[in-house]
Amino acid sequence: MIHYKSREEIELMRESAQIVSKTLGMVAREIKPGVTPLHLDKLAEEFIRDHGAEPGFLGMYDFPNTLCMSRNNVVVHGYPDDKPLEDGDIISVDCGALKNGFYGDHAYTFQVGEVAPEVKKLLQVTLESLYLGIAQMHAGKRLGDIGHAVQAHAESNGYGVVRDLVGHGIGRTMHEDPQVPNYGKQGRGKKLQEGLVLAIEPMINMGTHRVAYLPDNWTIVTGDRKHSAHFEHDVAIVDGKPDVLSTFNYVFEALGLPEEDFSVPAKI
């Protein structure tokens, strides 16, 4: 069942989402060759608690960390480890926070040092795909419109769109109805309505769309072990239009990039 949110609830969700956004901004300042994901995970937990929230992922489904950190060919659900980041890596940092009874859930894929041009393009197109999906989130449109926008852009650039994992509704629980695939047909699926809040999160692979589970039954990697990128925003429908509750501006500020602008292609 879909839980539509009131204006007051959406503002509480914005507060949770912004804490996650600020956490990613803090992480952005710390990511560099030689730093370990476990160190970043510890910093993130302290940062979230210092801002009056609880880490949203810690303990969920028995996950032992604050951040999901997915390097190179890991699509999502990577465990932070003690292997230092290397020049040329990319790493998706997915973070959640719980405050005032509502969750925020937000992800960004970072470049570590100097990244190969073809990998940089993958990140660029994935981020653009997110923005194109968000642009479809108007009252009266359909869930399929979001997925179609993401899929069309990614596949037109030769990339694989992950089918096994999807975005989701979000609110008092981290994962609510409806599921939000990153593929679909225009005009199909559930009608979008005022008060709907979604976590839209394209997961785009450089090669095949297929994925595989590692023996831990949690970490998900690309089927051909090529790189994958992942970006995520929390978005509400307010006055019939998309209202993005999270922001990459803290990340962009840390990286020296222009402010986020959903009307133009992303710059990363």
Rank of each mutant, 00 (worst) to 15 (best):
P55L: 09
S156E: 13
L85S: 05
A107K: 01
G101I: 02
Y131W: 13
P117M: 02
H153G: 00
K120S: 14
V76W: 01
E155A: 07
F110P: 09
G189I: 05
D82S: 14
K121Q: 14
S129F: 01
G96M: 06
Q179V: 12
Q151T: 02
L130G: 01
Q186M: 13
K99G: 05
L143E: 05
G147W: 08
V119S: 11
Y79R: 09
G187H: 05
T66A: 07
D81Y: 07
L192Q: 04
G167Y: 09
N182K: 01
E176M: 15
P64A: 03
K141F: 11
L85G: 03
P64L: 05
H175E: 13
V162D: 02
E176C: 04
V162A: 07
S129N: 00
Y159V: 04
V115L: 05
N72P: 02
E54A: 11
G158N: 09
E118Q: 12
D89Q: 07
G167W: 10
L58A: 07
K121L: 14
N157G: 02
R142V: 04
F63Y: 15
S70P: 06
T173N: 11
C68T: 11
D87C: 04
V180T: 10
N72V: 09
R71A: 09
P55K: 03
Y183C: 03
Q124G: 03
A139M: 04
P80M: 08
A135H: 05
V150H: 02
H153M: 03
E176S: 10
V119Y: 10
D87N: 15
I90H: 04
P64I: 06
L165P: 01
F110W: 06
A97I: 07
L123H: 03
P117N: 03
Q136H: 01
S92W: 00
K185F: 14
V197G: 06
Y183K: 06
K185C: 03
D105Y: 13
V115F: 04
L132P: 00
G144Y: 05
L132T: 01
I91R: 04
V125N: 09
P181C: 04
G189T: 10
P181V: 05
T66V: 12
D89N: 13
D81C: 09
S70T: 09
L58T: 01
K141G: 11
P181Y: 08
R163E: 15
R172T: 15
D62K: 12
A135G: 13
C68W: 12
E194A: 05
T173E: 14
H168N: 13
N100Q: 13
E114C: 00
M174R: 11
L58G: 00
G160E: 09
M137L: 15
N100V: 00
V75W: 03
P55I: 02
G56S: 06
I91S: 06
F57W: 10
G158C: 07
P181N: 08
K120Y: 00
K185A: 13
G158T: 08
P55G: 06
D89G: 09
F102Y: 15
V161D: 05
V125I: 15
G147H: 02
D87F: 02
